[in-house]
């Protein structure tokens, strides 16, 4: 009798330990996240309903001068009532989406074409090209942005100097002085009329193209290798041209690898803070501002903490919507593959 009760007690004890153990391993992580993630998230929502400003910094939410303003911050952001020049939420949102989409639309095809080019059987110096083409992946984007910023300098930048030398070949003597990062007139006015695409946008597209396609080439090369060679042999026996083979074999079989990479590229470009901040700082006149850089500007320079909190809440929902859509896209493609 005594022994069975002891066994039961021991069993109960081990049951208790079994249920508690996983939580013990989670305690440190959730304690930390409670303080620096979840509490700030709630705090953010609370602050977003106030007119928190620099004068309230000393006492925080206990400050006597703090006013509850309800949804005023949200209304101001969406309806353009913020005391900020050149800011229109929907213009920035449209530009941000356009920026991410156009980047991906250039990087992915270029990445695939270059991967196919490098995959040509019998091409000389393949290894050298491959090790060269990988270089942009290993350089920090922030350094890339600073370097390109200097390249696009009006007076001393390499781009204008390069264009000057190129123009000299055609007999021009005048130095090229394109104000890449300052000029506000959109070169192609009908393109995205909602947000003026200034020269700075094109300059950033060039710089980010340099940064972006090698990653896509990397992914595409991996996927190309898994395409069976006999498919191409069978196709060429049937008389399919190289172009037909590319469109009917390569592209469909690359899709499962390229769609996640495209989505990854899209979200990265959408939130590409340090690149935009270092290259143009959102200028000229906020024309290249994306959501995250504007959120940062609200805190760092304008010091409108209440509005910044409200803006971050909005950004969170934009990110959530994008996540839900992209998640659905990946799931949909997974189903097709399986």
């Amino acid at each position: 009798m005594a022994s069975t009760s002891m066994i039961e007690r021991a069993k109960k004890k081990s049951d208790f330990r079994k249920t508690v153990t996983p939580y013990m391993y989670l305690v440190p992580a959730f304690l930390v996240m409670a303080v620096i993630t979840f509490y700030p998230l709630i705090y953010q929502v609370v602050v977003s309903f106030t007119d928190f400003q620099t004068k309230d910094l000393l006492r925080g939410l206990a400050s006597e001068k703090l006013n509850q303003v309800g949804v005023q911050n949200y209304v101001d952001i969406l309806a353009g009532g913020l005391p900020v020049q050149n800011f229109d939420f929907f213009r920035v949102l449209t530009y941000n989406l356009w920026w991410a989409i156009t980047n991906v639309a250039l990087h992915v095809p270029a990445g695939i074409v270059i991967a196919v080019l490098l995959n040509t059987p019998g091409l000389w110096m393949k290894r050298i090209y491959r090790s060269l083409y990988i270089l942009p992946v290993v350089i920090p984007p922030l350094v890339v942005a600073t370097v390109w910023r200097n390249i696009f300098d009006e007076q001393y930048g390499a781009m204008n100097q390069f264009l000057t030398s190129a123009a000299m070949l055609f007999g021009s003597i005048d130095p090229v002085r394109i104000r890449w990062l300052e000029d506000f007139t959109p070169p192609i006015a009908w393109l995205l009329p909602n947000g003026p695409l200034t020269l700075a946008y094109y300059a950033m597209m060039i710089a980010n193209f340099w940064l972006g396609w090698p990653f896509m080439t990397l992914v595409a090369t991996g996927a190309l290798q898994s395409i069976p060679k006999d498919l191409y042999e069978a196709a060429s026996i049937d008389g399919a041209s190289a172009y037909q083979q590319f469109m009917n074999i390569t592209v469909p079989l690359l899709r499962p690898a390229m769609i996640p990479a495209t989505i990854y590229g899209f979200t990265t470009s959408f939130n590409l803070f340090s690149f935009v901040f270092f290259m143009t700082g959102g200028g000229p006149a906020r024309s290249t501002e994306i959501l995250v850089t504007f959120a940062y500007d609200l805190v760092r320079n304008l010091r409108l903490y209440g509005a910044a909190a409200a803006f971050s809440v909005i950004v969170f929902f934009v990110a959530l919507i994008i996540f839900l859509i992209t998640n659905r896209l990946t799931k949909a493609t997974e189903n097709i593959v399986e």
Partner: peptide
């Protein structure tokens, strides 16, 4: 939290 762009939490973290 992975959904949130890192900048999104900078305001409350600053204030905290």
């Amino acid at each position: 939290p992975l959904l949130m762009p890192a900048i999104g939490l900078s305001t409350p973290l600053y204030l905290l």
